[in-house]
Design a protein around this nucleic acid. Structure first.
Lengths: 360, 360
DNA sequence: ATTTACATTGACAACGTTGTCACAACTTGT
DNA sequence: ACAAGTTGTGACAACGTTGTCAATGTAAAT
């Protein structure tokens, strides 16, 4: 055990131990060609005996090909809701598979610091790539910094389809359209709607799907039956109350996410209504809560985890283009991949056929 | 604009531009002493004009003090539940504050790869620290790797208090004790209990608190009223059904987390019971779902986000010991900080006083 | 006026690795 | 047998920065 030295072994130690030049050791540890099998073994043994580990800093300094960090970032602007963390779970599984690490960063999209923070992140961690969710998908500042730095990224459910950049999403408009058709098929004609935060793609697209289904059915939408709820439970309560308190109460309510649907259900309980007979209710997202509600909620299942996983696949196949097209700079193969994942309409107990007596 | 060159400016470019030696530039960018104010400004200006950024690899290679990476990891073994992601939110807020970045990694605690994966993480990312949750808090392999590498870490709600290592948690036993007392104060005597996964600290401690309160009240626990539910909604359904279906149905049920309490509520609804009059129900954790249930759930609020934040504070004050005790190696100040955060008993509508008629 | 101390600055080596090039030893094609 | 290619190996410079130490200038103490 006289071997033990207090400093980490270097490539030089390995070379002298194996009785070869340092360059040969370098070749072996980098799996370069032009090394005989016998030599390989000899060097490998010396490496193991000494417990040698290459100094990444020295490597990064000398190599012309900028060293890969094997770090990608998930950037989001939301105060972590279930959606964000589900995306993370899916993304994480692909990171694991491809051997990358995931750093998560919340960037306040209103803060003037956002540029500095993004730049710091890219520089210090030498990001290999990024996945953007929520309001950050369309943030010019962040996108600009990433573009400048040549960091490829994938956007999850972006608002715009601008740029030749990849994205993954579901067809929210169509899902809302289908869910509305479900209510229509049950005979409902007076349908209330609770909207989310303005400017979110989800708010716009879900309402558009609802609108289209209503129009196709020859119905007009009563503006008095449209309320706002900011996508949040508490914020949706007042609107829910107004809707259910009307003398001409709608027979069904489409809340554009599950949290707001839960608020409608709670208010209905408080008012002593019988669900789903007095009012059918649907949500959107299929958060884990939805099946625990009473009655359990009819909703759209967004494959959020799969969105995260698909974003990861897109990113990592770009980063490790095995046999893929040779890419230069930050440009993606044209056209950029836009992936639309299938959704499910989940029928549970919060919707029921319109009862005869209720029809005017 | 003839200045533009295709390679990044180096310290040499800055030096020649400012007309000084490279060493002086080095001193300025590292805020070392022995530089005159005028010189500082001159160099700073050159730095800005050229957009110079120090090459971290070259730095890391030369400097004796191992470079800080400003990266800490959150390690967990659970398939991401709400708990884990809430810890993450709290931790993230402290990361932001202290200027660190957070990398999340799920390590399968059953996999033989766990050692390699942990080692890889530490080596490649040069972790400055780590926060452990869930079953990883007591994983000898992971703890061993971190100890070897000299990476300080904080454990969130660990099972054992072994080692002189910091941890943060709440007093789960006492919380369960208090919640049981709430049921007792309402007159309940026959109380069912739904347990979680075996070997989890939460399972053991919550039941212990329940047991203590019952014993102190002079009651014996009927083994027939104890069911298992694995902490999960679906897994708890059968036990909930058995409990509520008994001829001598308990007048209250303590589910040791909220998901299982939600299962009890659903089963009660299915059986046509009136809540909370026919049966009081309590849970544990106060997940976001709990207030959306009908009736809304009486439970214990774990300040999970605060646990994450407290873990971050512990870690970062250790990493940046401003005026703190000088520390050597991986040892923490003795005794290691063990932080116990306060919890809240959240009284909602799922509990009610025992009705007279029900008493035998 | 001389010493002493200290602040400021720079020249140069060193860090551990990879890229370039040179060279020897084979192998293949003529 | 000879040229031309290929494979295996090593010597050496270079990467961009910081540590060491020496050189200079300047203020304080004698």
């Amino acid at each position: 055990m006289a071997d033990i030295s207090d400093r980490k072994p270097t490539i030089i130690d390995v070379a002298s131990r194996a009785g070869v030049s340092i360059k040969t050791v370098s070749r072996v540890i980098n799996d370069e060609p032009h090394v005989s099998a016998a030599m390989r073994d000899r060097v490998r043994q010396a490496v193991n005996e000494l417990g040698f580990e290459a100094n990444e800093s020295a490597r990064g300094m000398r190599s012309l090909t900028p060293e890969k960090s094997y770090v990608v970032a998930q950037l989001y602007g939301d105060p972590g809701g279930a959606y964000t963390s589900d995306v993370q779970i899916g993304l994480l599984s692909r990171c694991h598979y491809f051997g990358y690490h995931l750093v998560v960063e919340e960037l306040d999209y209103q803060s003037p610091e956002i540029e500095r923070r993004t730049r710091d992140l890219v520089r210090r961690l030498k990001l290999d790539g990024a996945v953007l969710t929520a309001p950050l998908t369309d943030n010019e500042t962040v996108l600009g910094v990433l573009d400048d730095a040549g960091v490829p990224y994938v956007r999850v459910a972006p608002v715009t389809e601008l740029r030749h950049l990849p994205s993954v999403k579901i067809d929210e408009k169509r899902a809302a359209y289908q869910l509305t058709q479900h209510l229509l098929a049950f005979g409902h004609r007076r349908i209330g709607f609770v909207r989310g935060l303005p400017n979110h793609s989800a708010t716009i697209l879900r309402f558009a799907g609802f609108e289209q289904a209503m129009h196709e059915a020859g119905l007009t939408i009563d503006p008095a039956l449209i309320e706002d709820g900011e996508f949040r439970y508490h914020a949706a309560m007042p609107g829910a109350h107004r809707l259910l308190d009307r003398s001409d109460r709608p027979t069904a309510i489409f809340a554009s996410n599950d949290e707001m649907a839960a608020a409608v259900i709670t208010v209905a309980h408080e008012m002593g209504l019988k669900l789903p007979d007095d009012c059918s209710i649907v949500g959107f997202d299929d958060i884990s809560t939805s099946e625990m509600l009473w009655p359990s909620l009819t909703t759209v299942r967004q494959p959020v985890e799969k969105l995260g996983a698909a974003a990861g696949d897109l990113l990592f196949t770009r980063l490790s283009p095995l046999g893929g097209p040779s890419l230069n700079g930050n440009s993606w193969p044209d056209p950029a991949p836009h992936q639309i994942l299938p959704h499910d309409i989940v029928l549970r107990s919060s919707t029921a056929p319109l009862r005869r007596g209720k029809t005017k």
